[in-house]
Design a protein around this nucleic acid. Structure first.
Length: 308
DNA sequence: AATTCGGGGTG
DNA sequence: CACCCAGAATT
């Protein structure tokens, strides 16, 4: 239930709509999943692939994926091994498993049609609050409030006046984002895409191009002198982590089809993906056990392969 | 609320 | 070389 000050916030910020929507009319990228001819399944696949993965890296894999599995039933019937191979180096390969599980659930529960209902979408494997809202809005024109890292950053700066949003999406942020939604359905759906695009192309995390921003004259952060954001907490390093070792093992299996468990270290070294890191035995065990437990690998009498 | 889960382009 | 990217699931 919105408080009185939220209503004030709406009155203060509805004037954001016109500049952002007008900017989007001119500067929106021509992405294939934005085409009116793109299926809901195409939108869903794009949203899964785009989770923590930049657009430019998704584009070629998305095209190949849709050409090979043009409908949920096609992916539901595919071998997991083929799916993991097609996922290639997109990262977070568990997403590929969940996408296949989602396809199976769509066949089982929704007669092979991607559901439009946000709650039904949210119930599918690998689909959280963001992705459910994005598919509902972009594929079906249901004006859910779509809040990704780009939207959070634009609102944090333009409205709240801080350099960067916090580590995790808060209820207050979500309520603010909802209060900023245009009232008309068509504008609300376009607003979702437009704010996201503004964050991706102009209001970027590292070096925002404020000179090109349609909100430069009314941005709260800029009005405050663009104060530096609070120093973010250090993230997990990459070199030497279990994640690096897991990724290297997956790369070895992708390259060779299968790998003898005894020769794992040699096969992985051949991929060159570990750099100078030489995992200790305990780390090999941990990484391998994790991949097996996640269903990303199977061990058939000492041969490691992708599951069928 | 904090962690885990890839990979690669970029300032 | 640190940082970031159309997040989700688990704890």
């Amino acid at each position: 239930m919105p408080a009185a000050d939220d209503v004030t916030a709406v009155d203060r910020h509805t004037d954001l709509h016109e500049p952002v929507l007008a900017w989007f009319d001119v500067h929106a990228r021509d992405l294939p999943w934005r085409s009116p001819r793109c299926s809901a399944w195409g939108v869903l696949v794009s949203e899964i692939m785009l989770q923590q993965t930049p657009v430019v890296r998704v584009l070629p894999r998305w095209r190949a994926w849709l050409a090979r599995w043009p409908a949920p039933a096609d992916l539901a019937a595919a071998d997991t091994a083929e799916v993991l191979t097609a996922w290639d180096r997109l990262g977070y390969p568990r997403r590929a498993l969940r996408l296949k599980e989602a396809a199976q659930a769509i066949v089982d529960r929704h007669d092979g049609q991607v559901p439009a209902d946000p709650q039904a979408l949210r119930a599918l494997p690998g689909i959280g609050e963001y992705t459910a809202a994005a598919v509902a809005s972009f594929a079906f024109g249901i004006p859910e409030t779509v809040v990704d890292t780009n939207v959070r950053r634009v609102i944090a700066r333009a409205v709240t006046g801080i350099g960067l949003p916090g580590a995790s999406l808060t209820r207050a942020e979500m309520r603010l984002a909802q209060a900023l939604m245009p009232a008309r359905t068509d504008r609300a759906n376009r607003w979702n895409a437009a704010v996201m695009e503004l964050g991706a192309l102009v209001c970027t995390a590292r070096a925002p191009r404020c000179d090109h921003c349609p909100l430069r004259e009314r941005c709260a952060w800029r009005a405050a002198g663009s104060p530096a954001a609070q120093t973010p907490a250090r993230r997990q390093a990459w070199a030497g982590t279990d994640r690096q070792v897991r990724g290297a093992i997956m790369a070895a299996v992708r390259a060779d089809g299968s790998v003898d468990r005894e020769g794992l270290a040699a096969a992985v070294a051949k991929t060159g993906r570990l750099g100078s890191h030489r995992p200790a035995p305990a780390q090999w065990d941990r990484a391998l056990a994790g991949l097996l437990d996640d269903g990303l690998l199977t061990d058939q009498d000492g041969r490691l392969t992708f599951p069928r």
